[in-house]
Write a protein that binds this DNA or RNA. Structure first.
Lengths: 352, 352
DNA sequence: TTGTATGCGTTATCAT
DNA sequence: ATGATAACGCATACAA
């Protein structure tokens, strides 16, 4: 068996209470006793048992994270943000990725009780309502990029604003027919981006602008497939806005094969600003989203929720993180030749 | 407070023991009693307390995962593999990414006791030795892609074999001077890939081959920077093998800016086969590594370690996962035009 | 078939 | 300043 607090107490000829006091720095202990216990504990390489401790303290110092089946860059960044933020406060992350069907999610939530102090749920796919119903009652909750905020704290990325800004940017470059390749049906990020696109088309600007929406699923392949339809369309769009960079890359690939020059013959823009965007040829214009910060903020919010009292009466808050336009060569706005030439148009919008 | 097993027992007018038996399906219980308890438990939406349960059962159904600061695709895939595999067996994952310095890691390991049944450590950066010393003694351990296997179970990817195969492939295409852009110093994956590259150069083949090694750090930027030096070198390499795809993309970008045609003027190959590799122009030849499977296998191994008895005398095993060559246009071996044209040369090597 | 009682490892409350 | 002891929520050996 593992060495327990009793072993330390016995070896030091004191009671377990004293050992506990020393190790937690609580209560008065004679200096000499403290040092002796510390030494012995180290010599025995004693490590407190987490489960036992949290059974009595009612705190696990652990946060549960529920994620859907996310694509590479996004997934790792959001976790990194959470992890950095959590560790700074001595918290751990118990993550569960690719939760799809509701039954599985339910089982997951059940298993979380007694293991986490709070839950962070990222669910771009609609359907958070079900979640609330069968979640262990008093478990604090923070929603990420969710469709219906309901009465829960939520942090989201300004997808709509980013798409709006990008589409307007394309219009400002003179494009009058702008195609849009969308994301998966039911995905909240995707529908918000489409909303921004539509809004920008409708809004008064320099001249009329028409649109053309094509289906996509956030994967390269779907962008590749959308290209043909775009090129066949009459009037042919002079610009394409893909709902994410992966699809934009698929489009870029297809355009090159068809010998359609980007951006001279057709402009291209993406969303996400993944690291390789600026290393493509032409460098891909995109909308940068603060993924790391999204994760970090979620944890911060959760932590202040946890320390603000047992049943925090603090009203649910929702905040929106701003996106940033990364203008590069693919949209035809600039003619620079080297990567790293990043011109940024920033766009901020913070909600309560 | 949350509803406990006692609440259920009281509501059902039975003892907690009976409730426990029903919920765990152990021991004989009268059918009618069972149904009644089940109904009441559901009505009260009772959920067992994880910490309390694991305190007595000595099992947490949770696996600890220690990861370094990984790049996008790799990170998400390995976690996905673990998660899928873990959930299938009713296990959870408590992950901690970007563990860098040893002190932090030590604190992390301490906090793991009583919260996890085993530990999976991915540490391409050398220095696992320290880990073993201050880890809670009887915690089962599985190493991933580690330098020194020591006496621990470990699963690794055949980095050396993949690099060997790719370099030979380039030689077989007639290249006699092949440059190599390496990964971060101290990174085990990187050094194994370099080892394979060197081995292939030394080994007898069709004619002599010379090399040229350049530093890199696995990021696009470092590949971009390496390009100039490669183009200046005399004799100028006719092929470049980048230790990962990100750097290959940087190289591709730089070559295009310098108007150096790939593959006609210089061939290019990467490592990892990230999803966008086949959508680049030219499509990037690369070495596919089974990341998902790496994670999945790690969990499987851990689980069989856990169920093989309290202190499994089963000798530490190490296995190596095979890589696969993905030959595309960038190396000049084929002249296809459409993405999805994947020719595969497989290479297997399984160790005990 | 069911109930009683004990213990898991820790912290917290009260004595001393 | 320190020690004895009661929880915490659950599973289980044993008794009934």
């Amino acid at each position: 068996m593992s060495v327990t607090i009793r072993d330390v107490a016995r070896a030091a000829s004191v009671s377990v209470a004293t050992v506990s006091r020393v190790l937690n720095g609580k209560g008065p202990v004679r200096d000499e006793t403290r040092r002796r216990i510390r030494r012995i504990a180290r010599r025995l390489s004693y490590v407190p048992h987490g489960a036992a401790r949290s059974l009595i303290t009612k705190r696990t110092s652990t946060l549960g994270v529920l994620l859907p089946d996310l694509h590479g860059e996004f997934f790792s960044e959001v976790i990194r943000g959470m992890d950095v933020s959590a560790r700074r406060h001595g918290f751990h992350l118990i993550v569960s990725s690719s939760h799809s069907d509701g039954r599985e999610t339910e089982a997951l939530l059940r298993a979380m009780r007694g293991r986490v102090d709070g839950l962070i749920v990222l669910s771009p796919d609609l359907g958070v309502r079900k979640l609330l119903s069968n979640r262990p009652a008093e478990l604090p909750l923070v929603l990420l990029n969710c469709a219906d905020h309901g009465s829960f704290d939520s942090i989201r990325i300004d997808n709509r604003g980013g798409a709006l800004a990008m589409t307007r940017h394309l219009r400002s470059l003179g494009h009058r027919c702008i195609a849009f390749v969308g994301g998966p049906a039911g995905n909240h990020d995707a529908s918000e981006r489409r909303r921004g696109y539509r809004e920008a088309l409708r809004s008064a600007g320099s001249g009329r602008a028409t649109g053309l929406e094509l289906p996509g699923d956030f994967r390269e392949e779907s962008g590749y497939r959308a290209a043909d339809e775009i090129l066949r369309a009459r009037p042919r769009p002079t610009a394409v806005f893909a709902a994410n960079d992966a699809m934009a890359i698929g489009l870029l690939c297809a355009f090159r094969e068809r010998r359609v020059q980007v951006p001279s013959e057709i402009a291209l823009a993406g969303f996400d600003d993944i690291p390789i965007a600026r290393f493509l040829t032409p460098a891909l214009t995109s909308v940068r989203i603060p993924i790391f910060e999204l994760g970090a903020r979620a944890v911060e919010r959760m932590l202040q929720l946890l320390t603000s009292g047992p049943v925090p009466a603090t009203r649910a808050k929702e905040s929106t993180l701003p996106t940033t336009l990364r203008i590069r060569r693919s949209c035809g706005a600039i003619s620079g030749d080297r990567p790293g030439q990043d011109f940024s148009l920033e766009r901020r919008r913070e909600a309560r």
